[in-house]
Computed example of a mutant assay.
Amino acid sequence: MSASERLDSILRSELLRSSKPYGVECACICFSESPPAHLAHLIADRQFEPWGIVVTREVVLDAGGGAVAYVPDDVYTQFRAAGLEHWAVRTGTDSTWMHEREWRVPVPDEPKTITLGVQLTSLRAVLIGDPGWRPSSIRTGMWIHMQDGTPCHVCGDPFCQEITELPRLWLESEIWVWDMAARAVTRHPPGTLI
């Protein structure tokens, strides 16, 4: 999936799927800690795509996650020997991951997912790279007659259409639109970009 397709999937399903970080046996959900200046560095300088979700540290901690330790090779070997390599990143000369300031939520039994609506009940924000982008609408199962506005059922009438709506997380979250020229986000209150 492209970055925008992945974000669309997350918003519609309210699921974050785990994967195994490089060199790690335990599946995790991974986050990058990004204050505004660091977010600009990741997107503008490191070429990360400006599509994603923004959560708070408390949400990650409540889901059983935490900050990853950035350690020398000999200490990383000790983490690995203890089966805890998912909590550490090597800082050797060939390590290229230091810029991420990573946080992880371990999910040891694959295939397992964390449901945003349960473990992660809300988002701080949704980050998008295109001000005109909107997530795919979700089917509601409710039908309405488009001429008179009365409820109807699937009946073959071309004016009887299913009502759709934007995903809950999109409507309830602040939307951050990346502005490449300004190297910053423009913030929109919840429910205003519909």
Score class of each variant (00 low, 15 high):
residue 2 S to A: 05
residue 5 E to T: 04
residue 7 L to R: 00
residue 8 D to S: 03
residue 9 S to M: 01
residue 11 L to K: 00
residue 14 E to Y: 06
residue 16 L to A: 00
residue 17 R to P: 02
residue 20 K to M: 10
residue 20 K to G: 08
residue 21 P to T: 00
residue 22 Y to D: 07
residue 24 V to W: 09
residue 26 C to I: 14
residue 26 C to H: 11
residue 26 C to P: 04
residue 27 A to M: 11
residue 28 C to H: 09
residue 29 I to F: 09
residue 31 F to N: 07
residue 32 S to D: 08
residue 33 E to G: 11
residue 33 E to Q: 13
residue 35 P to S: 13
residue 35 P to Q: 10
residue 38 H to W: 15
residue 38 H to I: 12
residue 42 L to I: 06
residue 42 L to D: 09
residue 46 R to L: 10
residue 49 E to I: 04
residue 49 E to T: 09
residue 50 P to L: 07
residue 50 P to I: 01
residue 50 P to D: 02
residue 50 P to G: 10
residue 57 R to V: 00
residue 57 R to I: 04
residue 60 V to Y: 12
residue 61 L to E: 12
residue 63 A to Q: 15
residue 67 A to T: 14
residue 68 V to I: 13
residue 69 A to Q: 14
residue 69 A to E: 12
residue 73 D to Q: 14
residue 74 D to E: 09
residue 76 Y to R: 11
residue 76 Y to I: 14
residue 77 T to G: 06
residue 78 Q to H: 12
residue 80 R to A: 15
residue 80 R to G: 14
residue 82 A to C: 15
residue 83 G to A: 14
residue 83 G to L: 15
residue 84 L to Q: 14
residue 85 E to H: 14
residue 88 A to L: 05
residue 88 A to S: 09
residue 88 A to T: 01
residue 89 V to P: 04
residue 89 V to F: 10
residue 93 T to G: 11
residue 95 S to E: 13
residue 96 T to S: 14
residue 97 W to G: 10
residue 101 R to K: 13
residue 102 E to L: 06
residue 104 R to K: 08
residue 104 R to G: 04
residue 105 V to D: 08
residue 106 P to K: 06
residue 108 P to A: 07
residue 111 P to Y: 02
residue 113 T to S: 13
residue 113 T to G: 05
residue 114 I to N: 03
residue 115 T to H: 05
residue 115 T to S: 09
residue 116 L to G: 02
residue 118 V to P: 15
residue 120 L to N: 04
residue 127 L to N: 06
residue 128 I to T: 11
residue 128 I to Q: 01
residue 128 I to R: 08
residue 129 G to M: 01
residue 134 R to P: 05
residue 136 S to H: 08
residue 136 S to W: 05
residue 137 S to C: 05
residue 138 I to Y: 04
residue 138 I to P: 02
residue 139 R to D: 09
residue 142 M to F: 04
residue 143 W to N: 03
residue 145 H to F: 02
residue 145 H to C: 00
residue 152 C to N: 04
residue 159 F to K: 07
residue 163 I to M: 04
residue 163 I to R: 03
residue 164 T to E: 07
residue 166 L to Q: 03
residue 169 L to W: 07
residue 169 L to F: 12
residue 170 W to T: 02
residue 173 S to M: 03
residue 174 E to K: 03
residue 178 W to Y: 08
residue 183 R to C: 10
residue 185 V to W: 00
residue 186 T to P: 01
residue 186 T to L: 12
residue 187 R to A: 09
residue 187 R to P: 04
residue 187 R to E: 08
residue 188 H to C: 00
residue 189 P to I: 00
residue 190 P to N: 03
residue 190 P to V: 03
residue 192 T to E: 02
residue 194 I to K: 07
